[in-house]
Amino acid sequence: MQIFVKTLTGKTITLEVEPSDTIENVKAKIQDKEGIPPDQQRSIFAGKQLEDGRTLSDYNIQKESTLHLVLR
């Protein structure tokens, strides 16, 4: 499925993911596309910070959902 990741600069990245993917996985995909190390990424969805060990389905993130990426 496709999800979108919006950065603070307003750029939107499209990722191909599975509901079973962990947040860690997703951060690795963002690193592949953007070169941002996962330890600098904070992902926010529906106002909640997403934890690395959880999966997209844990957070009820579905296709075409938009995550927000904040850098630390």
Score class of each variant (00 low, 15 high):
Arg54His: 11
Lys27His: 09
Lys11Trp: 09
Pro38Ser: 13
Glu18Lys: 13
Asp58Trp: 12
Leu71Asn: 07
Val5His: 00
Val17Met: 03
Thr66Arg: 04
Lys48Asp: 07
Lys33Ile: 14
Arg72Ala: 13
Leu15Pro: 00
Gln31Cys: 11
Asn60His: 08
Ser57Tyr: 09
Asp32Glu: 13
Leu56Gln: 02
Gln2Trp: 13
Pro37Trp: 13
Tyr59Thr: 00
Phe45Met: 05
Pro37Asp: 10
Ser57Val: 07
Glu24Ile: 09
Ile23Gln: 00
Gln40Val: 11
Lys11Tyr: 11
Ile23Ser: 02
Asp58Phe: 14
Lys27Arg: 09
Val70Asn: 04
Gln62Phe: 08
Ala46His: 13
Lys6Leu: 10
Asp58Lys: 00
Val70Gly: 06
Asn25Ile: 14
Leu15Met: 04
Thr22Pro: 02
Lys29Arg: 10
Arg54Glu: 03
Ser57Phe: 10
Glu24Tyr: 14
Gly35Glu: 04
Gln2Asn: 10
Phe4Lys: 07
Gln49Arg: 11
Pro37Phe: 09
Asp52Ile: 05
Lys48Trp: 09
Pro19Ala: 09
Lys27Gln: 04
Ser20Phe: 09
His68Gln: 11
Gly35Ala: 05
Met1Asp: 02
Ile61Gln: 01
Leu8His: 14
Lys29Cys: 04
Glu64Cys: 11
Thr7Ser: 05
Asp21Phe: 07
Lys27Ala: 07
Gln41Ala: 10
Ser20Pro: 03
Val70Ala: 08
Ile44Val: 10
Met1Lys: 02
Thr12Lys: 07
Gly53Met: 10
Gly35Met: 05
Ala46Asn: 15
Glu64Arg: 08
Pro19Ser: 09
Arg72Val: 14
Glu34Ile: 15
Gln41Met: 15
Leu69Arg: 00
Asp52Tyr: 05
Lys29Trp: 05
Phe4Val: 04
Tyr59Leu: 05
Leu71Gly: 08
Met1Leu: 06
Leu56Ser: 01
Lys6Met: 10
Ile3Glu: 00
Thr22Met: 05
Ala28Asn: 11
Phe4Trp: 06
Pro37Gln: 09
Ile23Leu: 08
Leu50Pro: 01
Gln62Val: 12
Val17His: 00
Ala28Met: 14
Gln40Ser: 09
Ile30Ser: 03
Ile36Leu: 08
Asp52Gly: 06
Asn25Ala: 13
Arg54Met: 12
Thr66Asp: 02
Asn60Phe: 07
Lys33Gln: 12
Ala46Cys: 12
Thr7Phe: 15
Glu51Tyr: 07
Ile23Ala: 01
Pro38Gln: 13
Gln41Val: 15
Leu50Asn: 01
Lys27Met: 15
Lys29Ala: 07
Gln62Ala: 09
Ser43Asn: 11
Ser20Ile: 06
Leu50Tyr: 03
Leu8Asn: 13
Ile36Pro: 07
Lys29Glu: 00
Ile30Asn: 01
Val26Leu: 13
Lys6Ser: 05
Asn25Thr: 14
Glu51Val: 08
Gly35Leu: 05
Gln41Lys: 07
Glu16Gln: 11
Asp32Asn: 10
Thr12Ile: 14
Glu64Ile: 02
Asp32Ala: 13
Ile44Pro: 02
Ile23Lys: 01
Glu16His: 10
Ser65Gln: 11
Lys27Trp: 11
Thr22Glu: 01
Leu69His: 02
Ala28Asp: 06
Thr7Cys: 09
Tyr59Trp: 03
Ile13Asn: 00
Gln31Ser: 12
Leu8Gln: 12
Ser57Met: 12
Thr66Leu: 09
Ile30Trp: 02
Ser20Arg: 08
Leu56His: 02
Asp21Ser: 06
Thr7Leu: 15
Ala46Phe: 15
Lys48Pro: 04
Gly10Arg: 04
Lys63Pro: 15
Ala46Met: 14
Lys27Tyr: 11
Ile36Asn: 05
Ser65Tyr: 08
Arg42Gly: 13
Ile13Trp: 09
Glu24Thr: 07
Pro19Glu: 07
Ile36Arg: 04
Asp52Gln: 04
Glu18Ala: 12
Thr12Asn: 03
Thr55Ile: 05
Asp21Ala: 06
Leu67Asp: 00
Leu8Thr: 13
Arg72Asp: 09
Ala46Gly: 10
Ser43Glu: 09
Lys11Leu: 10
Gln41Gly: 06
Gln31Arg: 12
Thr55Asp: 01
Glu34Asp: 10
Asp39Asn: 11
Phe45Trp: 14
Val26Thr: 02
Leu50Gly: 01
Asn60Ile: 03
Ile36Gln: 06
Thr12Arg: 08
Tyr59Gly: 01
Thr55Tyr: 04
Val70Trp: 08
Ala46Ile: 07
Leu71His: 09
Tyr59Ile: 02
Lys6Arg: 12
Asp32Leu: 13
Thr66Asn: 03
Ser20Cys: 07
Lys27Cys: 09
Thr7Val: 10
Glu24Cys: 06
Ile44Thr: 07
Asn60Asp: 09
Ser57His: 09
Ile61Tyr: 00
Gln62Lys: 11
Leu15Gln: 00
Ile30Met: 04
Val26Pro: 01
Leu67His: 01
Leu8Ile: 12
Thr14His: 05
Thr66Pro: 00
Lys48Phe: 12
Gln62Arg: 11
Ile61Gly: 01
Pro38Ile: 15
Asn60Glu: 07
Gly53Trp: 14
Lys6Phe: 08
Ile44Asn: 05
Gln31Glu: 10
Ser65Asp: 14
Phe4Tyr: 13
Gly10Tyr: 04
Thr9Asn: 12
Val17Tyr: 03
Gly53Gln: 11
Asp32Tyr: 10
Glu51Gly: 04
Ile61Ser: 02
Asp58His: 12
Pro37Ile: 09
Gln40Met: 12
Met1Ala: 02
Phe4His: 07
Val5Trp: 02
Ser43Gly: 13
Asp32Gly: 08
Tyr59Arg: 01
Gly53Pro: 05
Asn25Asp: 11
Ser65Asn: 08
Ser43Val: 15
Lys11Thr: 08
Glu24Pro: 02
Val26Phe: 05
Phe45Ala: 03
Ser20Glu: 10
Asp32Ser: 11
Ala28Arg: 15
Val26Met: 06
Ile13Pro: 00
Arg72His: 10
Gln2Tyr: 13
Leu56Cys: 02
Val5Thr: 00
Ile44Arg: 04
Val5Asn: 01
Ile13Leu: 09
Met1His: 03
Ile44Met: 12
Pro37Cys: 08
Ile44Ala: 03
Pro38Leu: 15
Met1Pro: 00
Ile61Asn: 02
Ser20Gln: 09
Thr9Ile: 07
Glu24Phe: 14
Glu18Tyr: 14
Ala46Val: 06
Ile3Leu: 06
Ser65Pro: 03
Pro19Phe: 06
Ile44Cys: 14
Gln49Asp: 14
Ile36Thr: 08
Leu69Ala: 01
Asn60Gln: 08
Val70Ile: 12
Leu56Lys: 00
Ile30Pro: 00
Asp21Trp: 12
Ile61Glu: 02
Thr55Asn: 02
Gln49Phe: 15
Thr22Gln: 02
Lys48His: 11
Gly47Ser: 05
Leu67Val: 08
Pro19Gly: 07
Val26Trp: 02
Ile3Tyr: 01
Thr66Trp: 07
Glu24His: 11
Thr22Asn: 02
Arg42Pro: 11
Ile30Cys: 02
Ala28Gly: 07
Gln49Asn: 11
Glu16Trp: 14
Ser65Glu: 08
Ile13Val: 06
Gln62Gly: 12
Ile23Met: 05
Glu51Asp: 10
Ile3Lys: 00
Gly35Asp: 05
Gln31Trp: 15
Glu34Gln: 08
Ser43His: 15
Lys33Trp: 11
Val26Ala: 00
Thr55Val: 05
Gly47Met: 05
Ser57Asn: 09
Gln62Asp: 07
Phe4Ala: 03
Glu51Ile: 10
Leu71Cys: 06
Leu15Tyr: 01
Lys63Glu: 12
Thr14Pro: 06
Gln2Met: 13
Gln2Cys: 10
Gly10Val: 01
Arg54Asp: 04
Thr12Ser: 05
Pro37Tyr: 09
Thr14Asp: 03
Pro37Gly: 09
Gln62Trp: 06
Leu71Phe: 09
Gln40Leu: 11
Glu64Tyr: 15
Val17Arg: 01
Arg42Tyr: 15
Pro19Arg: 06
